[in-house]
Write a protein that binds this DNA or RNA. Sequence first.
DNA 1: TGCTATTTGTA
DNA 2: ACAAATAGC
Length: 434
Amino acid sequence: MATPVHLLWFRRDIRLADHPALLAAAADDAQVLACYVLDPRLATAGARRRQFLYDSLRELRAGLDSRLLILRGRPENRIPKLAKEVGASAVHVSADFTPFGTRRDDAVRAALGDIALEATGSPYLIAPGRVRKNDGTAYRVFTPYHRRWVEHGWRPPAKSAAAAARWIDPADTGERNHDIPDPGSTLSIPAGERAARTRWTDFVEQHLPAYADARNRPDLDATSRMSAYLHFGNIHPRTLAADLTGAAAGPRAYLRELAFRDFYAAVLHEWPRSAWWNFNQAFDAIEVDRDEDAERTFEAWKEGRTGFPLVDAGMRQLHQTGFMHNRVRMITASFLVKDLHLPWQWGARWFLDQLLDGDIASNQHGWQWAAGSGTDAAPYFRVFNPDAQRTKFDPDGDYVRRWVPELDTPAYPAPIVDHGEARREALRRYGSIS
DNA sequence: TGCTATTTGTA
DNA sequence: ACAAATAGC
């Protein structure tokens, strides 16, 4: 009897190690055709993020000795057609829980008919929906979620299967193998599985012990910068968690950040509308500015010329590198919402466009946290003071000087708002719903 | 995972 | 006279 043929459809799991769906696809001595679908709808993603994706795909293809088929088009058209052509009995994927991914996979499953779409593993330590309150409903507050998350636990990394699998050469199929695009964007960190592992090993050795406190300091190189690798699945969080054992403060603080990532994915999965609408609908009643003045201040914010040095430093770091330190993300977000009184969705859209790690769950819920409208929301009366934050977290001014070199010259703009007044105005507007 | 004004504590 | 703690936004 002939051995089965399986498709392994890569999405946000662009790696060969610790890959449960790859294991499942290669089981039963199956022949495996690895593929990726370039979806025209993703052309709207920021240029740098597409570059990161394409570089990751090039590395994956090399790791498979070129046995990776690149298709172009809508997955619900391309995947079923390919599966039928090669006589596949199943299409294997890592589960995707985002609103876009869920809709896409439903369409593919429907078009596949009798061929199974087998989802194995997720991009998270614990998949959305698995950590729930005793009454079966989803958590809306992080702290109790975190407690239950730690109790629940997770599997160890999956064993390696790529070398032993029987990969099908795309040239033996009738399909055209498309080129992987190269937009020519410059990346501040190299993409791919090898770079992810190298970066993680260096971080564990050099920065993890001091991470609990140093992670809040944008002037130090104290964070892991693993976010983009996690977003594209160049590495699985389980691989990271395996190095986060023990009770020391550093590993525990890092694990908590991974729990936040799982939490926001779970919340978005439960409440897909919260991607672009207030999680707490009471905030729909708050007045936000959308006029021409608002457009102008929004431009100043995007370009890093608000006259608030830490805000401008962060926005310039974002625009120039596709990355922003997390503490500074909170400060720039608070500034947009509570000093400029703009809709958080404007800022969230810009971050998604600019960030290499732009992730619908973490980004949108991070923004809602800043706006006070999200889960576990910061009480509305918390308004970051950009200058106080600067003193606390960039004490020597190294971060600000790096990104705003003209700081002490006449070329640097005056503050576009009075923080004290803007704060009082925010409290007035927010007060209307309390 | 705030900020600020005010009160309280210490010398 | 100033730091530390506290309350209310």
